[in-house]
């Protein structure tokens, strides 16, 4: 089994159609799969639903997707950043829909999506406006809010090392949403700095088992969102 597409990110995202839902890993720039995002911008599907913790920063990555008019809706916890112009302008102009989800609820909804759990109860947001319209219940004297699973057509995730079976190891706090999104998408596409032969990753150290990964692309020298923004980069 070899899930490697090669070194060309474009091939890995070539079938993502208009209207798709796309989970994108990363917390701010940490773990953001910039090369896969930019390959998707080159391809240019529209009307996308993007699921990410944030909503872009600067003129690259998810912000550049918004600038390119590709995003219909964002599901995120924190649509603010150092340079949130792309999202802010689109949102205030009514060009983009926002589903605001508390960060831990976002993570658990994605986990539940990948784990086949359609709904769960959490204390988070109980009694707040973000619980409006959602079922609530009391367990052992405390109030909880029912939240639904979250799944997607595609996930774009950045890993440090992959073997050809798709077993993954991440880099530092860049792990964040990666293992959850890999589980929750019908087609998970991973960019990895290194792709090694099966057996070269110690099975004890595997973070995401390959069953959750469909396609691998090697990006040997991945760019960091923060570095690009400090250089005032613009994509395309």
């Amino acid at each position: 089994m070899d899930k490697t597409i090669g070194d060309v990110a474009a091939a890995a995202v070539a079938d993502i159609p208009d209207g798709a839902s796309v989970m994108i890993g990363g917390f701010g720039g940490s773990g953001a799969p910039i090369e896969l995002i930019h390959a998707l911008i080159d391809r240019g599907p529209r009307n996308l639903t993007v699921i990410n913790n944030n909503a872009g920063n600067g003129r690259i990555g998810i912000a550049a997707m918004i600038d390119a008019g590709m995003v219909r809706k964002i599901v995120c916890s924190f649509p603010k950043s150092k340079d949130p112009r792309a999202f802010t302008e689109a949102y205030l102009a009514g060009r983009i829909e926002l589903e605001l989800v508390p960060q831990g609820t976002l993570a658990e909804r994605i986990r539940a999506g990948g784990a086949g759990i359609p709904a769960f109860y959490t204390p988070t947001s109980f009694g707040t406006e973000l619980a409006a319209g959602k079922p609530t219940a009391e367990f052992d004297g405390r109030g909880y809010v029912q939240e639904r699973w979250l799944k997607a057509d595609y996930a774009l995730v950045k890993a440090e090392t992959a073997d050809r079976h798709g077993n993954l190891v991440y880099r530092k706090a860049g792990r964040n949403f990666g293992p959850l999104m890999c589980m929750a998408a019908a087609t998970t596409i991973v960019q990895a700095t290194r792709i090694v032969a099966p057996g070269e990753i110690d099975p004890e150290q595997v973070v995401t088992p390959g069953i959750f990964v469909k396609r691998l692309v090697r990006v040997e020298t991945p760019q960091q969102e923060e570095d690009l923004n400090r250089a005032e980069a613009v994509y395309p």
């Binding site: 916890s77 603010k80 949130p84």
Partner: peptide, 15 residues
């Protein structure tokens, strides 16, 4: 108005 953002605030108050 403006852009609402919650992050982990609603999670951190529980637990």
């Amino acid at each position: 108005g403006g852009v609402p953002a919650v992050g982990g605030a609603m999670d951190l108050v529980h637990g």
